[in-house]
């Protein structure tokens, strides 16, 4: 079971000054989604004429489903500067992967709640850290893609693009760097020092 919480309006506004395409995932029953708050924020964006299109679906973490849905909205997505995803971290990463090299941003933070997890077979992973970093890591989760869950950049252990822990695994920060370069957002690597907040870990705090 997990819960998503809307990032602050200022954070979301700061992501992109331009037009956005919005994807909502009302997902699986394992995820609690902040429907009302999301709707209100999206209405504001729409009133400001900044939304090229919206769709709401479930299980965006299923790439086949998602691919089909995205194909109905190709021109609207092309007209947007960025895609804003209101879902758990897995959903955002799935969208980001399929829409490469489009800028894809997370509008929510994902927290764990005791109970069942969703059971969709996954290609990407989210550790429900409660302070989603995807917006500064090119839509690739640094917690699950990097063996040390580093949030401030690559360690010195990457060799031939592979992780020091597992030569069969691509270095997560190598992927993040490449992605940021591709979307022209290397500037985010100059953001302030990132500190994990383990107090967000509901499962541990309780």
């Amino acid at each position: 079971m997990l819960i998503t919480q809307l990032k602050s309006k200022e954070t979301i506004e700061a992501l992109t000054p331009g037009k956005v395409f919005i994807i909502n995932c009302h997902g699986c029953k394992e995820v609690r989604f902040p429907e009302e708050e999301a709707k209100a924020l999206q209405k504001e964006l729409q009133d400001a004429g900044r939304v090229t299109g919206i769709f709401t679906t479930d299980y965006i973490c299923n790439p086949d489903n998602l691919k089909l849905r995205l194909s109905y909205h190709e021109s609207e997505i092309a007209a947007a500067d960025a895609v804003l995803v209101f879902s758990c971290g897995v959903g955002v990463q799935t969208v980001s992967e399929l829409l490469e090299p489009k800028k894809v941003y997370a509008a929510c933070d994902t927290f764990p709640l005791p109970g069942f997890q969703g059971v969709t077979p996954l290609q990407v992973d989210c550790a429900q850290c409660g302070e989603c970093f995807l917006n500064i890591t090119g839509g690739i989760c640094p917690l699950t893609a990097c063996s040390k869950s580093l949030v401030n950049g690559q360690c010195g252990g990457s060799k031939d693009g592979k992780c020091e822990v597992d030569p069969n695994m691509e270095c997560g920060w190598e992927r993040i760097y490449r992605r940021l370069k591709q979307v022209g957002r290397l500037d985010v690597l100059k953001c302030p020092v990132q500190l994990r907040n383990y107090a967000n870990d509901v499962a541990i705090a309780e």
């Binding site: 401030n152 690597l189 100059k190």
Partner: peptide
């Protein structure tokens, strides 16, 4: 002399 020199330089700057 890393093969990920650009990522290393970005980290150095941080």
């Amino acid at each position: 002399c890393s093969d990920s020199l650009d990522a290393q330089l970005a980290k150095m700057e941080r």
